[in-house]
């Protein structure tokens, strides 16, 4: 059993009258892929922002490799539904953006950016501006930018939410491939129950008012995941249980 990479202990956040996140305790294994699914307002993005250090929690602590990082930044990779590529930089310079924002971009940094881009099919577009790329390509660049920060923990907040269904399926398979190659730990927020099961080792289901984790499923599906995974009885069973939790039906 791998040791815990990330631990939340009684982490909570209140905005005015609203309990955005009730005291939450969580442990995320090193190298695992954990999906978080839940409706709007269930506190999943709040949880992400607390882990990333953008929000200070009202209570509790965040530990990364047993180091206290509550309210501190600079220790996770972070990616949103919006690709947030800067239009004035080329693909290569967007990939190295974190380095440019925290120090100098060195020759090896640029070489790594080019290597990653070539490995994942964007080698031809290194000198292009983001405006020349399709939505799926832009999200891949955004993910590469997240990868080269060399953080063990990647927080992905609905990264494929704005893509069409076809592109989304391609991106999911691509993400699993990269995850396997690079041995990172992924926390993945989504609205999409299918996506949460297809990608993960474990699914956390969250519910609003107050925002909290209401269920924690270990995903029994074998890897690698393929199109057949989507019709596997274990997949359908897990989907049914999550859907009941989310939509209030008796399970």
């Amino acid at each position: 059993m791998s040791p815990a990479l990330l631990e939340l202990r009684d982490v909570s956040k209140v905005f005015g009258e609203t309990v955005a996140l009730a005291p939450t305790t969580l442990s995320i294994d090193d190298g695992s892929f954990v999906a978080i699914v839940g409706p709007s307002g269930c506190g999943k993005s709040t949880m992400f922002n607390v882990i990333a250090g953008l929000l200070a929690p009202d209570g509790g602590e965040v530990r990364l490799r047993d180091q206290l990082v509550t309210g501190a930044t600079g220790h996770v990779g972070y990616m949103l539904q919006k690709d947030l590529l800067v239009p004035w930089r080329t693909v290569e310079d967007n990939i190295t953006m974190a380095k440019r924002l925290t120090g100098r971009v060195t020759g090896p940094d640029r070489a790594e950016a080019r290597r990653v881009a070539r490995a994942y099919g964007l080698g031809e577009f290194l000198r292009h501006y983001p405006s020349a790329l399709s939505g799926g390509m832009r999200q891949r660049v955004a993910f590469m930018r997240t990868l080269v920060t060399h953080q063990s923990l990647l927080l992905l907040d609905e990264p494929f939410g704005a893509l069409d269904a076809q592109t989304r399926l391609e991106m999911q398979q691509w993400l699993l491939q990269v995850w396997k190659d690079t041995e990172r730990t992924v926390l993945f927020i989504t609205h999409d129950v299918d996506e949460s099961i297809f990608l993960s080792d474990r699914v956390l289901v969250m519910s609003p008012r107050p925002g909290r984790v209401v269920a924690d499923f270990v995903n029994p599906l074998a890897r690698p995941r393929t199109v057949d995974t989507l019709t596997d009885p274990a997949f359908v069973d897990m989907k049914s249980r999550i859907m009941h939790l989310l939509h209030g039906g008796a399970s």
């Binding site: 994942y120 020349a132 790329l133 891949r140 991106m171």
Partner: peptide, 16 residues
């Protein structure tokens, strides 16, 4: 390379 072909999904064409 283990990921050869991953880029071949045809994720849209760039502007000509």
């Amino acid at each position: 390379m283990s990921v050869a072909g991953v880029g071949g999904f045809g994720l849209g064409r760039p502007r000509a």
